[in-house]
């Protein structure tokens, strides 16, 4: 107490005088804080490197016994007979992502344009929290709804006996990536300068012409970013897909017959295999592939941003 009073009186006598001790303490704290924040950011980079290293190191071992061409292009996945061709899963992931893209992007864009331009304010304020809530719903719940409601529905409509497959998975994924694409596109469209809109109206265009010829091109970069992020989520999604895809390592005859993708196959088999087996290494290689795909997508987004600015 006395120390504080004496400090205060000192300060009153000479406002520029800061006691050396408190100055040093603040100085050290300042640097410690900077050091702490630098350390946490470095840790993040370190974790990414560790993930790349551990997954890659384990995955690469598969090529000791399986040739590169066999692993990537062979459609024969028979681990009990030493056939490790991941082609089915790679094709499955590609097909599923394409199908999700075709369904999800138009719907999300309609939602984004609607909430950014057409909807009255009260409805817009309602749509955004609902979309946030959709992001929050666990993927496993989506999968569960898919298997209990969507799959029986597909079975009934198409008349097949199974119903699990690419179509069911793509519909479930659509609901999951819808909020991601919609929110980012919505933000991008809302961020387009008001001047553009006014200039377009002044030239006599209707709202629709303005949206399609001015807004969408101007917000293109943000929309593409949203779509890529959504697709990255679709490629990496596991638990929702595993419940509705059917999990058989064969190429599907049609959209509603069972097949398998990279993520679903990893999660179905990983807990039952020996760690030191080619089978396990093959699964890690598939995970490494997923990792590379998602990193490449992020790289594309970053390139887009640099080019756009």
């Amino acid at each position: 107490m006395e120390k504080i009073i004496s400090n205060t009186t000192n300060l009153l006598k000479n406002p520029l005088l800061i006691t050396k001790a408190s100055f040093n303490k603040n100085y050290i704290k300042n640097h410690l804080f900077r050091f702490y924040s630098l350390l946490s950011v470095l840790l993040l980079g370190f974790i990414l490197l560790m993930i790349l290293f551990f997954i890659g190191k384990t995955g690469i071992l598969v090529f000791k016994e399986v040739s590169l061409a066999d692993f990537f292009f062979s459609l024969n996945w028979e681990p009990y007979e030493d056939h490790y061709g991941a082609g089915v899963f790679i094709l499955g992931t590609l097909a599923l992502t394409t199908l999700t893209f075709l369904i999800a992007v138009p719907i999300s864009l309609v939602m984004a344009i609607f909430s950014a331009e057409i909807a009255p304010i009260w409805l817009r304020n309602l749509v955004r929290p609902i979309l946030d809530l959709l992001v929050g719903i666990p993927s496993i719940v989506y999968g569960y709804l898919g298997i209990t409601i969507l799959v029986p529905f597909i079975r009934e409509v198409t008349g097949t006996s199974i119903g699990e497959g690419l179509l069911a998975a793509a519909i479930v994924l659509t609901i999951m990536v819808l909020p991601t694409i919609t929110r980012i596109s919505d933000d991008a469209i809302s961020a387009v300068s008001q001047d553009f809109r006014e200039a377009s109206y002044a030239l006599g265009s209707t709202r629709l012409q303005m949206i399609f010829k001015v807004l969408l091109p101007a917000a293109k970069q943000g929309i593409i970013t949203g779509v890529i992020l959504g697709m990255a989520r679709a490629i990496g999604e596991t638990m929702a897909v595993v419940m509705v895809i059917g999990n058989t390592a064969i190429l599907p005859a049609n959209l509603y017959s069972p097949t398998s993708v990279l993520t679903s196959n990893i999660v179905m088999e990983i807990l039952n295999v020996q760690y030191d087996s080619t089978w396990n290494y093959a699964l890690y290689m598939m995970a490494f592939l997923l990792l590379l795909i998602s990193l490449v997508l992020i790289f594309i987004i970053r390139k887009l941003r640099v080019k756009g600015v």
Binding site: G45, I47, I51, I235, G236, T263, L295, L297, I298
Partner: peptide, 13 residues
């Protein structure tokens, strides 16, 4: 890039 890359790593990985 690392932060964004890490954000996009699939949960299964």
């Amino acid at each position: 890039t690392c932060v964004e890359g890490l954000a996009s790593v699939p949960s299964i990985v």
